[in-house]
Design a protein around this nucleic acid. Structure first.
Lengths: 330, 330
DNA sequence: TTGTAGGCGTTATCAC
DNA sequence: GTGATAACGCCTACAA
C-alpha cells in the first residue's frame, strides 16, 4: 500500500480510502490510485485490515459432515448470499459430535469471525455458555426455536416425521416401521414425530423401531432393511430417517424380489437429487436446504448490519412428496 | 495476551512462546500460563499472528462446484490431512469458469494463503502468469502434468476414457456413443480418450458423440439418453462422461423399457456412492478423489515445510469397474 | 529460559 | 478531501 501511495504521491490513508470508501476520495485521484494499484499488482492484506478494523469479513459455518449433501446444499445457499457481500466462509466439520463442535468453535473464534452459523440447536452446555458470552451474531440452522434470544432458520423435524407417518397411516399402512442411523439431533426428532403419529393412531409398537448409531449410507440402508425385516417381518411400510438409507432399501428390495410398494412401502427424508429418479421413485419429505442456507445467511447479514430481523425464527417448512414407493393399502 | 502475561507476571513474549513453542518455556511456568489463559478465556488472534509472522496457516482451495460430490470428496481428503496440522482451508468456487478462477484467486490472495490447491490444469493465461510470479506453493489436482515445475496429483483423464472405451470394444460393442455435459477440462479429455480408442479400432463415427455444455445432473442424463437415441438409434453402448448422467440414463431406460445391458449398455465415470447400488449396477471408472485430496494436501505440506517432494507429479490412477450395465455382445 | 524493541499492513481518529 | 499519528495483537531478532 505504501508503494501505491508513493507512486501516486499521496498518503497511505488515501489509498486505503480509495478502496474502502471510494466516495470519500476525489474522482481523479481515485482513478490514479486504482491505476497505480493495478500496475503494481497491489492486493490489500486482509489480516492487517482485520487487525486494524476489528472486522474480519469472515463468518464461521459449523456443519456435522462434509460428505452429506444436505449440509453442502446449505453451505451452497450460504455461499450464494455471503460471497457477493464480500464475506468469506470458514467451514468447520464437527463430525456429528458436540465435543467436536466445542473445540472447533474455539479454533474458529481465533479468526474473529463477524458471525456464526451453526447446525441445529443441540449444542453442548459449554458451547451455549460460550455463545452467550460471545456477543457474536449467531444463527442456528435446520431446526426451529421458540426462544426469543435465539436466531434460527429451519423446519420442524418433528412435524416432518409426524406428517410423513400420518400420511402413511392415511394411506392404509398399519405396521409402519421407523429405521434410523447416525442418530443425530434431527434424526431423533423425526423419530419423535413418527412416534407421536403412531401413538395418536394407536399403532405404536416399539418393535417397529430400528435405531443404529452408525453413519448413514446407501449400503447401510440395504443392511438395515434386512435387519428390519428380520425384526418385524409383518411390517407393511418403512419410514427411513433419510433418503440415503431409503435408496439403499429400494435397491435391496429389488434384489430380494420384494415388491415396492405392494409388499412393502418405503419412505425417506430430505428429497435428495436422486430420489425422484429411482425406480420406483422415492416418497420422501422435501426439505428446503438451499433456502435454509440462503435465509440463515440473510438473517445473519441483517444482524451484522445491526438490524434486528423482523422474525427471530424462520420456519421454511417441508413438503411430503408422495411418489411411487408408497401407495394405498386396502 | 497482555492480560494473561500480567496475571502470571511474565512478558507477553513468554505467553506467546508458551503456546507456539511450549518446549522453550519452563514447565511450571507454562502450566501457570495455560491456567491463566483458560481463566481469562484467552484465545490467540490469528490475524495478529499472521501479520507478525507472515504465515497465515491457511490454504486456499479452488474447486469448480460445491454441489458436485467429486470435488467435495477431494476437499474432504484435503481437510483430513490439513486440519490436524492446524491449517485452515478457504474454499473458493469457480463455477467452472476460468474468469471466475482468476477473480477468486485474486480475492484469496488477500488472505495470504501459505499454499494453493487448484483444480485441473486448464487455468487462464493470466492465472498461470500470476501463479508464476507468486511463489506460493501450489499443487494442481485431478490431472497429470509432465512439466517439472508444476506439482500435480491426479489421474490421466484421457487414459480413463480410453480404457473404458477399449473395454467396451473388447466386450463386443461396436456402436459406442459418448455423451457429455458441462464440458469442463476433464470431460473433454475423457472424450479425447474415447475418440482415440474408437479410432484405433476403426470404429469412430462423429455421429456417435453428443456434447452439451449444460450442467450435469441425473435428470439431464435422462434427457441426453433420449437425444442420443434419436441421434444414433443403432448405438449398442453409451459411455457417459460422469455417473450422474449415466444414472439418469439407467432410470430412463427402465421407464422406456429398454433392456440394459442387452439392448443398450451404459457406462459412467467417477464411481459415485450410488453407482454400485443402482439396478442394474453401473459400470464406471472409479477415480480416487478422496486420495487425490489427501495426497495433494500431503504434497503441499511438504512444500510448505520447504522439502521438495520426491515426485513432482503423482498419478493415482483409476479402475474400470465392470458391473451390470455392461455385458458381452456376441 | 526469559525479556526488550521494533515492526508486520492496515485503519480510526483527529487535524488540516 | 487529505494527511499524520497511533494503535490493532502478535512474533522475529536479539540481548540478558
Amino acid at each position: 500500500m505504501a508503494d501505491v501511495a508513493e507512486r501516486v504521491g499521496v498518503s497511505a490513508m488515501t489509498v486505503s480510502r480509495a478502496f474502502k470508501t471510494p466516495d470519500r476520495v476525489a474522482d481523479s485521484l481515485r482513478e490514479r490510485i486504482q491505476a497505480a494499484a493495478r500496475d503494481l499488482g497491489y492486493l490489500p492484506n486482509r489480516a492487517a485490515s482485520q487487525l486494524a478494523s476489528a472486522r474480519s469479513m469472515t463468518i464461521a459455518v459449523l456443519i456435522p459432515s462434509l460428505t452429506n449433501t444436505v449440509f453442502i446444499d446449505t453451505v451452497a445457499g450460504i455461499h450464494q448470499v455471503m460471497h457477493p457481500e464480500g464475506y468469506q466462509i470458514l467451514i468447520g466439520v464437527t463430525g456429528y459430535s458436540g465435543d467436536g463442535e466445542e473445540r472447533l468453535l474455539e479454533t474458529y473464534l481465533e479468526y474473529n469471525p463477524d458471525g456464526l452459523l451453526l447446525t441445529g440447536l443441540g449444542h453442548s452446555a459449554a458451547t451455549w455458555t460460550r455463545l452467550r458470552g460471545l456477543a457474536i451474531p449467531t444463527v442456528h440452522m435446520m431446526e426451529l426455536s421458540d426462544r426469543p434470544d435465539i436466531y434460527a432458520v429451519g423446519l420442524s423435524q418433528i412435524e416432518g416425521g409426524q406428517a410423513m407417518t400420518r400420511r402413511l397411516i392415511e394411506r392404509g399402512y398399519r405396521r409402519i416401521g421407523f429405521v434410523a442411523a447416525q442418530l443425530d439431533e434431527r434424526t431423533i426428532r423425526r423419530g419423535e414425530g413418527y412416534r407421536r403419529a403412531m401413538q395418536e393412531a394407536g399403532l405404536y409398537d416399539a418393535n417397529l423401531e430400528l435405531l443404529s448409531p452408525e453413519p448413514s449410507s446407501i449400503g447401510f440402508g440395504a443392511e438395515l432393511l434386512d435387519r428390519m425385516l428380520a425384526q418385524a417381518p409383518d411390517c407393511d411400510a418403512l419410514f427411513f430417517c433419510n433418503d440415503d438409507l431409503a435408496q439403499g432399501a429400494i435397491y435391496r428390495c429389488r434384489r430380494l424380489g420384494i415388491a415396492v410398494p405392494d409388499r412393502l412401502a418405503i419412505a425417506g427424508f430430505n428429497d435428495l437429487a436422486a430420489s425422484a429418479w429411482t425406480v420406483p421413485a422415492l416418497t420422501t419429505v422435501a426439505t428446503p436446504r438451499f433456502a435454509i442456507g440462503r435465509e440463515a445467511a440473510s438473517m445473519l447479514l441483517s444482524l451484522l448490519r445491526g438490524k434486528r430481523p423482523e422474525r427471530t425464527c424462520l420456519d421454511l417448512g417441508f413438503t411430503v412428496m408422495e411418489r411411487e414407493t408408497t401407495g394405498t393399502r386396502t
